[in-house]
Amino acid sequence: MASGLNFGVKASLPHFFGICFGFPSMILAVGFGLGYVFERYAWLHALIQLVGIVYLIYLAWLIFRAAPRHERKSISKPLTFLQAALFQWVNPKAWIMGTSAIAAYTTVGAELYLQVLVLVFVFWLMTFPSAGVWMMGGVWLQRVLTNPVHSRLFNVVMALLLVASVLPILAELIAKYWR
């Protein structure tokens, strides 16, 4: 959404496609063996979640402090395809969704690889409309957020929502490792 808001559709397409291919590739890796690594070394999964939480809170801080779009002297560039694809690998929400889907929609001992491939294909198909709606929502907001006060309020609300989205993950980590 932020990319669509700040850069429009054309400039956001590499970011969009990075998400559309990065997330399913993460699901594929988890389904084809990374899940085994995380079962043996649970701390590694927790570390990736913690890094993701810290990064998302950092992004929330940047959003919170950002000047309204039309007041910025220079606008940075949107994420590249590779940056957006790699971001999926540190996004704790993506990890939770991916690992939960594999646990919920696969059956141990029954063509696991085929099940994972079907799951990856479904996620790949659904990521296009899902990420597209968010990007187009950002483009729509370009027209709405012309008032600096509204633009500032939007940044604050988005930052707070981003922080709120990681609180359940943080609570789960605390409950799991600091009992």
Rank of each mutant, 00 (worst) to 15 (best):
V116M: 08
I75E: 13
Y177P: 06
G109V: 08
E172D: 14
L167F: 13
A94D: 07
V54H: 04
G18E: 01
A131G: 06
P168W: 04
P92Q: 06
V144H: 09
M126T: 11
F121M: 12
R40A: 11
Y177S: 10
K77W: 00
R40V: 02
I75M: 13
K176Q: 15
A94V: 08
I174N: 03
W124T: 12
V122A: 07
R40P: 00
A2C: 01
P68C: 09
T80G: 12
P129G: 07
I48A: 14
I169R: 01
V120H: 04
L28W: 10
P24E: 02
L125M: 11
H15W: 09
S12F: 01
I169K: 09
G4D: 02
V122C: 07
A159E: 02
T127W: 00
V163P: 02
A46W: 00
V157I: 15
V37C: 04
S3R: 00
A103V: 13
L79Y: 11
M26Y: 10
L50F: 15
L145A: 09
G52H: 01
S100K: 13
P168L: 12
V51E: 06
L170G: 13
E172L: 13
E172V: 14
L153Q: 11
F87E: 01
L47Y: 03
Q49H: 09
H45P: 00
L170D: 05
L50K: 00
V30Q: 13
Q115R: 09
A60C: 08
G138Q: 05
Q88I: 10
V9T: 09
W43Q: 04
W178V: 14
F17S: 09
L112Q: 11
L82A: 14
I169C: 04
I169E: 01
E71G: 11
N6H: 11
A60E: 03
L34M: 12
V166W: 04
Q49P: 00
G22V: 08
W134E: 15
L82I: 14
G52I: 00
H15E: 07
L141I: 03
G4T: 04
Q115I: 04
H70G: 00
L160W: 10
Q49V: 11
P78G: 06
L34E: 01
A101I: 07
L114P: 00
G18V: 03
W124K: 08
M1E: 10
I96R: 05
Q142V: 05
N6T: 00
W61T: 14
G109Q: 04
P78L: 05
Q83S: 06
L119H: 02
S3M: 05
E71D: 14
P68T: 08
S12G: 06
V30W: 05
A110Q: 14
G33F: 01
G98H: 03
W43G: 10
P148N: 06
T127Q: 14
T107M: 10
V54G: 11
V51L: 14
L170T: 11
V156H: 13
V157W: 13
F21M: 11
M126W: 10
L86D: 01
I57T: 15
Y41A: 14
V90Q: 00
F17H: 09
E111R: 14
R143Y: 12
F21D: 04
V90F: 15
A159T: 05
K176S: 15
P78I: 09
W134K: 04
S3K: 02
S151W: 09
L170S: 08
T106A: 11
M97T: 12
L173A: 05
R65P: 12
L62I: 13
Y58F: 13
V133W: 01
A104D: 07
T80C: 03
A84G: 05
R143S: 10
Y58R: 10
